[in-house]
Design a protein around this nucleic acid. Structure first.
Lengths: 174, 174
DNA sequence: CCGAGATGGTTTAGGTTTCAAACATCCGGG
DNA sequence: CCCGGATGTTTGAAACCTAAACCATCTCGG
């Protein structure tokens, strides 16, 4: 399992990781590493720009997006946690910071005294509108290397990959 | 009893986020959200399995992979940082834990007393071999929904996307 | 009414991550 | 030789993230 690594390459990233796996599933591995590198590249740039342009972070932005999308009724913490696919304890902290910044309001639910409901303040709504517009431009810019047809094909293939992964995760407790 | 990993959640995920953006670059946005969802789905499952099967984490695994690939000469902390595309301060902490666990050796460089060199211990090499084999199987399993042709096409498109993003990042300090 | 379990949230402990600032060391010019 | 800048690493603060333990409340059966 330790092939003498034919050393070389100066500019290396995660993709070069396993240039020569010995046996079977080398192709899948390379595909995965490329997908990961691509997603991390874009995500990192988005995080960087959110920080530089708005002094915020991706989790904050995502939470605001969920509330914007949910409308004036707002969401409970648990609902936000499910939609963002993160742990509930995580949402507690992010929401606390957004409330402290005045972008999100939190009020108690009279019907269920356990649940707190989050919603955007007017300022939060305004701020998210700014951020969201910039975010959309950034993504378009970062994906500008793809033609329309490329985008469609990629979208379709990723859908298939996502479905396969989801069934592999949910279906088989290997 | 906190709900199991926030994966199941039949209802909504990041993709549903912006079902109806008003204006221009909706298509790119949807593509990006799908890519992100797909990568996060797989990455999360890999993290989960690394934790359950080996009691380790993805960054630790990645660092071992870099050292394995680098061969017996090892790498400096800075070189590892560049290859993993993470900050140097980050590598300090991860390496410290791996050294404490006995999987990685750290020795001073007589030629440059600033730089520390990391390399795998025999135990580290053995342990990584186990983890790496399992990891390769997992990836193959998680991507099993794709035919060989799908994989090739996806690989090509992601390469194009990655190149475009890279040039958009490096080229224009917008 | 009352207790058991389910559900919503918070807290705690451990890791990961980044940035910025400090520190250590090397290298080159004067 | 010595000073300044470049380079390698560490440290500290703040945020994020999870899992697990815990608390508060709700719901439902008896």
């Amino acid at each position: 399992m330790s092939p003498p690594p034919p050393d070389g390459a100066a500019a290396v990233d995660a993709e070069t990781l396993l240039a020569d796996a010995p046996a079977g599933h080398k192709r899948e591995l390379r595909l995965w590493l490329r997908m990961l590198a691509c997603a991390n590249l874009i995500e990192g740039e988005v995080r960087r720009r959110l920080r530089l342009s708005f002094g915020t972070t991706l989790p904050r932005f995502d939470l605001l997006a969920q509330l914007e999308r949910a409308g004036p009724a707002g969401l409970t913490l648990g609902e936000v946690s499910r939609r963002m696919m993160v742990s509930n304890g995580n949402v507690t902290g992010i929401a606390a910071r957004l409330v402290a910044e005045g972008l999100v309001a939190r009020r108690a639910n009279p019907a269920d005294r356990r649940a707190g409901t989050l919603s955007l303040t007017p300022r939060g709504r305004r701020e998210f509108a700014r951020q969201s517009a910039a975010h959309e431009e950034w993504i378009a810019e970062l994906l500008a290397g793809l033609t329309s047809a490329d985008q469609a094909a990629l979208h379709r293939l990723l859908g298939r990959a996502k479905g396969g992964a989801r069934s592999a995760i949910g279906g088989e407790p290997a």
